[in-house]
Computed example of a mutant assay.
Amino acid sequence: MTYEIALNKAWDKIAALASSKKYTVKYFTDIYEVRISDRMMLSISSDTPASEDIAILVLHYLTGFLKYGYNPKEEWISFKDIKGGQSYYPAYQENTIKPILEKFKEKTDDLISYLTESLEGRIVKGGDVTVELPTFSDVYIRMVLWHGDDEFAPEVTILFDRELTEIIPSEDIAVLLFNLAKRISDEL
Results as ranks from 00 to 15, higher is better:
residue 1 M to R: 01
residue 3 Y to V: 01
residue 4 E to Y: 00
residue 7 L to E: 03
residue 11 W to A: 07
residue 14 I to V: 15
residue 14 I to N: 02
residue 15 A to I: 06
residue 18 A to E: 10
residue 21 K to L: 11
residue 23 Y to R: 03
residue 25 V to H: 07
residue 26 K to N: 11
residue 28 F to H: 07
residue 29 T to H: 12
residue 31 I to E: 12
residue 32 Y to R: 01
residue 32 Y to W: 04
residue 34 V to H: 03
residue 34 V to M: 05
residue 34 V to I: 12
residue 36 I to C: 02
residue 37 S to G: 06
residue 38 D to G: 00
residue 44 I to H: 01
residue 44 I to D: 00
residue 47 D to M: 12
residue 48 T to K: 13
residue 51 S to A: 11
residue 51 S to E: 12
residue 52 E to N: 03
residue 56 I to S: 05
residue 57 L to D: 05
residue 57 L to I: 03
residue 57 L to G: 03
residue 60 H to K: 14
residue 60 H to S: 09
residue 61 Y to F: 15
residue 61 Y to S: 03
residue 63 T to P: 00
residue 63 T to H: 14
residue 65 F to E: 08
residue 67 K to N: 05
residue 67 K to Y: 02
residue 70 Y to N: 05
residue 72 P to C: 09
residue 73 K to T: 14
residue 75 E to R: 13
residue 76 W to I: 05
residue 78 S to I: 04
residue 80 K to A: 08
residue 80 K to C: 00
residue 81 D to L: 02
residue 81 D to E: 15
residue 84 G to T: 01
residue 86 Q to E: 15
residue 89 Y to E: 10
residue 91 A to I: 14
residue 91 A to N: 12
residue 94 E to D: 11
residue 96 T to A: 14
residue 100 I to P: 02
residue 100 I to S: 05
residue 101 L to T: 04
residue 103 K to E: 13
residue 104 F to T: 08
residue 104 F to C: 03
residue 105 K to N: 02
residue 108 T to C: 04
residue 109 D to F: 10
residue 109 D to I: 10
residue 109 D to S: 13
residue 111 L to A: 03
residue 111 L to W: 05
residue 111 L to K: 04
residue 112 I to V: 15
residue 113 S to R: 15
residue 116 T to I: 13
residue 119 L to T: 05
residue 124 V to H: 10
residue 125 K to R: 11
residue 125 K to D: 13
residue 126 G to I: 03
residue 126 G to M: 06
residue 126 G to K: 05
residue 128 D to R: 13
residue 133 L to M: 03
residue 134 P to M: 09
residue 134 P to V: 08
residue 136 F to R: 08
residue 138 D to N: 10
residue 141 I to K: 05
residue 142 R to W: 05
residue 143 M to L: 15
residue 143 M to T: 14
residue 145 L to D: 07
residue 147 H to G: 14
residue 148 G to H: 02
residue 150 D to V: 08
residue 150 D to E: 13
residue 151 E to Y: 03
residue 152 F to G: 00
residue 154 P to K: 04
residue 155 E to H: 09
residue 155 E to M: 09
residue 155 E to N: 12
residue 156 V to M: 08
residue 159 L to F: 14
residue 161 D to R: 11
residue 162 R to W: 03
residue 163 E to H: 02
residue 164 L to C: 00
residue 165 T to R: 02
residue 169 P to I: 08
residue 171 E to Q: 14
residue 173 I to L: 05
residue 175 V to W: 10
residue 177 L to N: 03
residue 178 F to G: 04
residue 178 F to T: 11
residue 178 F to Q: 12
residue 179 N to T: 07
residue 179 N to Q: 14
residue 182 K to E: 15
residue 182 K to T: 13
residue 185 S to I: 06
residue 186 D to I: 01
